[in-house]
Design a protein around this nucleic acid. Structure first.
Length: 210
DNA sequence: GCCTTGATGACG
DNA sequence: GTCATCAAGGCA
């Protein structure tokens, strides 16, 4: 079996862990098959002091509870009434922080992911090394898209991401790849926190959501 | 009112 | 291809 992360990996400060998740593979094995992709875009949500975080002000509810626990677990939430998003819990117990996974570069299970996303079996058109066609870039570019593509549900709330069948597989930047950072998406309401450069992505990667 | 997305229509 | 707009949808 592929190696898993050591416990300590997830105990890094959130703003250090977030960029280090870039290039890490997010894997889900189900009876339908394996779906996986490299993480190419994330956003950090840094606890009670971050107005954009669900745990802002220390808000502790049934939804946010998992963020108060151990890092490395999955925080799944529903947004706009219809979409689910995946986050990696970070920060030590009591520090309700998390990292939103915003986009994957698919590495395994193209057909399964396309089917889950309702895109049809056009995966065979892909040729590695060339610029991927639009439908392929749309497969997991966006937090709700990647959640749907990997078949993650509310049942997976709180799952330990060091443990198959839903887990993070060690990986990192390829030679020549660089990290870029900028403001987070969709948090215009968050006052001054709106401008914090806590979104990280792999510069130039075609699978980033924007 | 929300850590989103897909459809639609205008324009190069 | 881009960019802008809009509405779907459930819950705190």
């Amino acid at each position: 079996m592929a190696p898993l992360f050591p416990e300590e990996f997830f105990w890094q400060p959130t703003l250090e862990l977030a960029p280090r998740l870039l290039g890490v593979e997010f894997v889900h094995k189900t009876p339908e098959g394996v779906a996986a992709g490299r993480i190419v875009e994330v956003e950090a949500y840094v606890g009670p002091g971050d107005r954009a975080a669900h745990s802002y002000g220390g808000r502790r509810t049934e939804r946010t509870e998992v963020m108060f626990g151990e890092p490395g677990h999955l925080y799944v939430f529903q947004v706009y009434g219809m979409h689910l998003c995946c986050n990696v819990v970070s920060g030590p117990p009591g520090a309700p922080e998390a990292i939103l996974l915003r986009a994957l570069e698919p590495t395994e299970g193209w057909e399964l992911m396309a089917r889950r996303r309702g895109l049809g079996p056009r995966w065979q058109l892909y040729e590695p090394g060339r610029r991927p066609p639009g439908f392929l870039r749309q497969l997991a570019a966006g937090p709700a898209r990647l959640t749907e593509a990997l078949g993650v549900t509310r049942e997976d709330y709180g799952w330990d991401l060091r443990r198959p069948p839903l887990y993070l597989r060690p990986g990192g930047l390829a030679p020549g790849e660089e990290v870029a950072s900028g403001p987070r998406i969709g948090i215009d309401y968050a006052g001054e926190a709106r401008d914090y450069p806590w979104r990280f992505w792999i510069k130039g990667n075609p699978f980033v959501s924007r």
